[in-house]
Design a protein around this nucleic acid. Structure first.
Lengths: 307, 113
DNA sequence: TTAGGAAAATTTGTTTCATAG
DNA sequence: CGCTATGAAACAAATTTTCCT
C-alpha cells in the first residue's frame, strides 16, 4: 500500500543539506497553507504536543503542480533551520510522526540519516495535494547535540525551524527532478513564542530617505515598552548605522505598532539602500530583522515618484 | 594558528594567561566573534589540558570575559557574542612592558611604617 | 494524546574575596 | 608594596528542561 513510495533508493537521493529549487520549468512544489508561526516542540521526556497546525486551525497544505504522471509520489518532510544561512537539517529538532487515531488521514514512514524524514503520499487522485497533519516537532537537548563532534551550531536561542518538503519526480531517462519547498519560520520555544515580538506584516516596504512617514506593523507580543530600531550592515556583517524610530505608544496594541520611520543617515545617496529594522521588548527580546528600503530623494531620470 | 599543536594532545597547561587564550580564540574565528559556548569548545579542542576540570576553567573564562574591558559583549539576533577590543587589549600588554619595576620607580623614600 | 503553565535546572554574566608570584 | 593572574563562590538574570494538572 505505502511501500511503493520508497521505490527510489535512499542512497541515490541528494543530501538533505543540498540547496534545491522549489520549481522548474514544468513543475512547482508549493505550500498552499503555511504552518502557524508558533509551535511548541516537545522533549523526549514529554508526551507529544501534536501536529503542526495552520493559523486557521487546520493543517499546512502542500501541492505539486505540473505533474502529469499516474503514479503517486512520496512527499518527504523534515525539520530545517530558519536562520540567515542556507537551509539545512536542524540539529536540535526532529520531525515527530504523529500516529493520530482518526485525526491523521495520511500514511507515512520514517527514515534516518542523522535527521528523521517523514514520507507521505502525493496522489494524482488528490491533485497531488497533501494535508500535513502528521508532523509534530521533537526538541533534542542542547547539551546532547553540542557535544557531538563536528557539530558547530549552538542550541541556545536557536529555536526557530522550518518545515521542509521534498519530492523526487521520475524522468524518462531514469533520473529524477528534485524539488524542495520550505515553510515560513516556526518558533518552537514556549518562552520565545510567548515573549519575543513577531512582525507579521508591515504597512510599507520602504520610503524616501527623509522618512517621517508612519508605518504600521502587524504582529504579536508587542508591548508598551516595545521599541523599533533601524540599522544598516555592510556585506561582511559590520553594523554601520543604528537609529531608534519613535513609536506611537498611545495607538499601539499587543498586535499593532505605529512607527514613525526615521530619516536615513545620508540624505544625498543616489541609489536606494536596503536596511533592516526590528522590534525589541526590554533588553534582549528582539524580533527577527525585517527588510526596509530607503529610496533617494532625486532619482536621476528613471521614473517620477508619485506625489 | 597551529602554534598550539603541542598542547592539543599533551596534557600540560599552556603557558598563556586566560585573557591571551580567549583573545586568541575570538580572533581566530572567521567573524572575530564567538559565543561563550564556542569559546569553551575552542579551549577543549585546542588544549588537552582543558578537557579536564571543566567547572574550574570555564568559571575562569567567564570571570575573565567580564573582568577585562578588552572583551566586549555584543548582542545580535541570536544570543550574544564576545568580541575583542584590540586597542584595549594592546593597552594592557604595553603597560606590562613599560611598567617594569626598575625602569620607572621614582626612588621611593625609605620610611618606616 | 494534546495543551498550558510553571517549577526546577542550567547557562551565562557580574562581582567579591583570597592568595601566590 | 602594589599589581596581575587564578580560583572559588555568591548572586542575578536569561533560557532550557522537566513536571504537573
Amino acid at each position: 500500500l505505502v511501500s511503493s513510495l520508497c521505490s527510489i533508493p535512499l542512497a541515490s537521493l541528494p543530501p538533505l543539506e543540498w540547496p534545491m529549487p522549489n520549481h522548474t520549468e514544468h513543475y512547482e512544489l508549493h505550500i498552499d497553507v503555511q504552518p502557524k508561526p508558533h509551535h511548541r516542540a516537545h522533549y523526549e521526556t514529554e508526551g507529544s504536543r501534536g501536529a503542526v497546525k495552520a493559523p486557521t486551525g487546520g493543517h499546512p497544505v502542500v501541492q505539486l503542480h505540473g505533474y502529469k504522471g499516474k503514479e503517486p509520489l512520496g512527499l518527504q518532510i523534515f525539520i530545517g533551520t530558519a536562520d540567515e544561512r542556507i537551509l539545512k537539517p536542524h540539529a536540535f529538532y526532529q520531525v515527530h510522526r504523529i500516529t493520530g487515531k482518526t485525526v491523521t488521514t495520511t500514511s507515512l514512514e520514517k527514515i534516518v540519516n542523522g535527521t528523521k524524514v517523514l514520507e507521505i503520499p502525493l496522489e494524482p487522485k488528490n491533485n497531488m495535494k497533501a494535508i500535513i497533519d502528521c508532523a509534530g516537532i521533537l526538541k533534542l537537548r542542547n547539551a546532547d547535540i553540542e557535544l557531538r563532534k563536528g557539530e558547530t551550531d549552538i542550541g541556545r536561542k536557536n529555536t526557530r525551524v522550518r518545515l521542509v518538503f521534498r519530492v523526487h519526480i521520475p524522468q524518462p531517462g531514469g533520473q529524477h527532478i528534485s524539488l524542495q519547498a520550505a515553510s515560513h519560520p516556526i518558533e518552537c520555544s514556549q518562552r520565545s513564542a510567548h515573549e519575543l515580538p513577531l512582525v507579521e506584516k508591515q504597512d510599507m516596504d520602504g520610503c524616501s530617505v527623509l522618512g517621517g512617514q508612519q508605518m504600521i506593523l502587524t504582529g504579536q507580543n508587542f508591548s508598551s515598552d516595545s521599541r523599533v530600531i533601524f540599522m544598516e550592515k555592510t556585506q561582511d556583517g559590520q553594523q554601520i548605522w543604528e537609529m531608534e524610530a519613535t513609536v506611537d505608544k498611545d495607538k499601539s496594541q499587543p498586535n499593532l505598532l505605529f512607527v514613525e520611520v526615521p530619516s536615513y543617515r545620508e540624505l544625498s545617496v543616489c541609489h536606494s539602500v536596503k536596511v533592516h529594522f526590528y522590534v525589541i521588548n526590554g533588553k534582549r527580546k528582539r524580533s527577527q530583522p525585517q527588510h526596509f528600503t530607503f529610496t533617494p530623494l532625486s532619482v536621476p531620470s528613471i521614473k517620477t515618484e508619485p506625489q | 594558528e597551529d602554534e598550539f599543536e603541542l598542547y592539543r594532545h599533551t596534557d600540560i597547561r599552556p603557558p598563556f594567561t586566560y585573557a591571551t587564550l580567549i583573545r586568541q580564540a575570538i580572533m581566530t574565528a572567521s567573524e572575530r566573534q564567538l559565543t561563550l559556548n564556542e569559546i569553551y569548545n575552542w579551549f577543549t579542542s585546542t588544549f588537552a589540558y582543558f578537557r579536564r576540570n571543566a567547572a574550574t576553567w570555564k568559571n575562569a573564562v567567564r570571570h575573565n570575559l567580564s573582568l577585562h574591558k578588552c572583551f566586549v559583549r555584543v548582542e545580535n539576533v541570536k544570543g550574544a557574542v564576545w568580541t575583542v577590543d584590540e586597542m584595549e587589549f594592546q593597552r594592557r600588554r604595553s603597560q606590562k612592558l613599560t611598567g617594569s619595576p626598575t625602569t620607572m620607580k621614582p626612588v621611593p623614600s625609605s620610611r618606616a611604617v
